[in-house]
Design a protein around this nucleic acid. Sequence first.
DNA 1: TTGTACGCGTTATCAT
DNA 2: ATGATAACGCGTACAA
Lengths: 332, 332
Amino acid sequence: MSRLAGVSIKTVSRVLNREKRVAEATRAKVNAAVASLNYRPNVAARTLAGHRSFQIALACDNPSPYYVYEMQSGIRDRCQMDGVRMIAQPYDHDSERLLDDIESLVDASGVDGLILTPPATDYPEVLALMARRNVRFVRVSPGTDLDLTASVFIDNVGAATAMTRHLLALGHRRIGFISGHASYATSTQRLEGYRSALDDADIAFDPLLVRPGDYDFASGADATEALLALRDPPSAIFAANDDMAAGALSVAHRRGLSVPAQLSIAGFGDDAVSRFVWPPLTTIRQPTRTLGYQAADLLLAGEFKIERREVPFELVRRESTGPLRSAGSAAG
Amino acid sequence: MSRLAGVSIKTVSRVLNREKRVAEATRAKVNAAVASLNYRPNVAARTLAGHRSFQIALACDNPSPYYVYEMQSGIRDRCQMDGVRMIAQPYDHDSERLLDDIESLVDASGVDGLILTPPATDYPEVLALMARRNVRFVRVSPGTDLDLTASVFIDNVGAATAMTRHLLALGHRRIGFISGHASYATSTQRLEGYRSALDDADIAFDPLLVRPGDYDFASGADATEALLALRDPPSAIFAANDDMAAGALSVAHRRGLSVPAQLSIAGFGDDAVSRFVWPPLTTIRQPTRTLGYQAADLLLAGEFKIERREVPFELVRRESTGPLRSAGSAAG
DNA sequence: TTGTACGCGTTATCAT
DNA sequence: ATGATAACGCGTACAA
């Protein structure tokens, strides 16, 4: 017991929990004792006795490592401020275990809060769970039941509309769209933005120009092959995320298409992938790290209320980047 | 208490902990009760009473999101088998907080084990901490004090030697090397392999051909600019990781150099980045996910002993991939 | 094979 | 402002 060091008994608890009613003198003594003994309160005991675990969980399943990395980084940044730990709880989007994992996170681990990313954010069973539980939940980019939990998001529809308008402004009339997996609301929203921009421009929607993907590189490549194989192929391709855009790009290269001279490619993501492929892609920059930070902040900051926080996106233009012509001439 | 459901008292504990001496009948009854009540033992209570927390931590700081993602995935796969959770504990490699974080992970959170990745694996203070603690530690790719803790690794020296030999066999005589940050033992080891192969081929080591990087895209690009600016530039560049190789590639593109016709680029990583840049790069495939899995396995499987596990690497050749010529001719 | 009593280290409640 | 005491929910040791 740190009582030996200090002079008071478990007033230590008050000090450590930064409670109001403590004399400045006692507080100092306790703090000194804590420092000298390198004392660290046991988390398990605090969890058992109190009602907080000093842990939050991130239930995340996304094919893009960058997304996961940035999301975790943002959450970490916020957690560090409160001395809270993050449990990383990956899940397979088709796994039966998800619900069980979440429940045991709440029941057994007693986490103070849970952050969910798509597609689980919109699973009916998960929504039902959240509805009957009295736990802090924050959903990132949810698609349905927006008032059920707190959430952070960007305007996916607006972002996709902006990008599509941008491509239209460049003169493109046939724009291919590679969607994400249908279970991701973000994918649906981005497709909606795409359609909306076409509508505004009075361009007929051609279902052939929309190909399903899986938010990963390979599916982006496959979808692009399909789009380029069309009788009347698109002059631009807008992928619902950067990994798929990178896949699209690889196909362009493989086929010897100059980008963007012969084929424009646009992406959507946190601008890591889009920046380091060649040529760097025009993309919608989604500040994933900020999404994570804000999600954690909703969980940790004071009173918890069901609040919706929108984070701004940015359209990053990179058309000016030279086409591969220079590379070609050098090679030829 | 689930006593109401079952008939016995806290023999439940025995059942849940899969102890030997329990009658098959009682076990069945208890299990039924557990299932019907959806009972989940409280982790905090178990941690407090017992001596396990059912949590392990991954202290990881790596500039490559793919590395982190794959590492976590491997650990997750193994943890899932034992119902153990993973705490993701990122750190800044220059942070004073690291030691404090690790200690509180052990003292306060009472994790059952800790997995460390470079560069923290070789920090003297961290090593000292591990030496005086009686906790399960596993280091991934450590560089020093190999007998201090259990570890998993690939033969970095051998891998770099193999790649360098490969480049030599292709006819290259001036091979640039982009190292990682000096605090990463893996970087030093890979450089050593590079030098070793040169020695074997009786090629004088030219310090100008070695440029420091930071294991990230930007530093790879910078180092490449420097290498190409040399009076006698290299015909091939071997980067100590794939992110830097991608950076090198971007410079080649920007300068209109055909890859690999005019400049060969080789990488080192888990083959995600190297596969989706253009052209896909020859690389040393390090099975990062396997490293994570094995690290977790060392922690969780039975008796813990200080064991060293080596995982095989693979040299993935991709020179046959066409140069950019086709793209160029199409563009021109 | 199963049940009982105690303790893990902290917070919460109530006195003081 | 501070101290005593009872939980918190489970393992462990020992008894039955």
